[in-house]
């Protein structure tokens, strides 16, 4: 269990003055990851996206550690080059310090355009932790749907309209795809549950080989909710079991948190403007579908984790 009071004594590798929107949960994920890392030296790679753009506006950088941004699709491949250079120098006796390697990417850069690069890096077994901050759309370009966007969400490329109820597909199950790479560690986290997040980050960094963490990261602008509710809504995404917290530790699926009382999906989506079109007479059918699918996915997960529903 991470000791927060001890961890908060270390200088965070992420600094204030970044220009992410007020209330954005993505920098909150980074902040908690930095807390979990403590004083372990890290090198960070970042896929193109909100976080990268808003944290490195020349001549300012919000990174106190070494940082590399290359392009959109290639954070994992880029970091695999960094990590390999580290191994080469270590073997040659030119470097002896322990360094950890962390990549951050949004869902666009991870679920979609960067999936091949990520899959390759995981398969090759580089010693790196890849963290996806999943805000469920291309937020940097203005809220276009990605394969992480929830069913029925209204985005600028899956708009709700006369003949559309928003995005018509369920989201890609990226955490399961990563687990299927048989990497030592994969997990799903939400910053509302910060102890769980920090524990998993520490675990992921301690394994020998690649690890993957998928972090829920609410976006007040794209999801259309009051900025103050970022953490509260994140908590609801877990309590409704839309975003379950679990880990796959060396192939073993384990549920990290089971809500005492599973809340209806409606409690989470009602507060988000991107689902507003569902709250009509007609939309009741869609909400039912959504609930049904959440229930199915939840049961599937419980089974995988050998939990009794």
């Amino acid at each position: 269990m991470p000791n927060l009071k001890e961890l908060m004594q270390h200088e965070s590798f992420f600094s204030p003055g970044h220009r992410m929107c007020a209330g954005c949960v993505a920098p909150l994920v980074v902040r908690q990851v930095a807390l979990a890392v403590g004083d372990t030296p890290v090198v960070v790679a970042n896929a193109t996206g909100c976080l990268e753009v808003a944290s490195t506006i020349f001549p300012y950088t919000a990174w106190r550690c070494s940082f590399i941004h290359n392009a959109f699709a290639n954070a994992a491949a880029t970091l695999s080059g960094v990590e390999t250079a580290y191994r080469a120098l270590k073997k040659q006796g030119k470097i002896n310090k322990e360094i950890k390697f962390i990549a951050f990417g949004g869902d666009g850069g991870t679920y979609d355009i960067g999936l091949q690069s990520l899959s390759g890096a995981m398969e090759r077994g580089h010693n790196m932790l890849y963290i996806c901050y999943d805000n469920g759309a291309y937020m940097n370009t203005g809220i276009q749907r990605s394969s992480a966007t929830p069913l029925f969400a209204d985005t600028t490329t899956s708009p709700a309209g006369q003949v559309s109820s928003g995005k018509s597909q369920w989201r890609k199950d990226l955490t399961a795809i990563m687990a299927a790479h048989n990497i030592p560690y994969a997990a799903q986290v939400a910053p509302s549950h910060f102890m769980d997040l920090m524990t998993k980050v520490q675990k992921a960094l301690s394994v020998d080989g690649p690890s993957f963490i998928n972090a829920m990261a609410h976006c007040p602008r794209g999801w259309r909710y009051d900025t103050r509710e970022g953490v509260e809504l994140t908590r609801l995404s877990v309590e409704t079991c839309y975003w379950p917290l679990y880990e796959v530790d060396h192939g073993k699926w384990k549920l990290s948190y089971k809500p005492k009382e599973k809340k209806p999906i409606e409690t989470w989506i009602r507060k988000q403007g991107r689902f507003r079109h569902l709250f009509t007479d007609k939309g009741q059918t869609e909400i039912k579908w959504l609930q049904q699918r959440v229930d199915e996915e939840w049961s599937k997960l419980l089974e995988r984790c050998k939990e009794v529903g």
């Binding site: 091949q116 690069s117 090759r124």
Partner: peptide, 26 residues
């Protein structure tokens, strides 16, 4: 050779990894 060889999954990743390695000072 002393080389660490990365058998990447594409040329996009080949160039990306080489950029990462070169920026690491090798």
């Amino acid at each position: 050779v002393k080389t660490e060889f990365i058998t990447v999954e594409s040329e996009h990743s080949a160039m990306s990894a080489v950029v990462g390695a070169a920026a690491s000072g090798v």
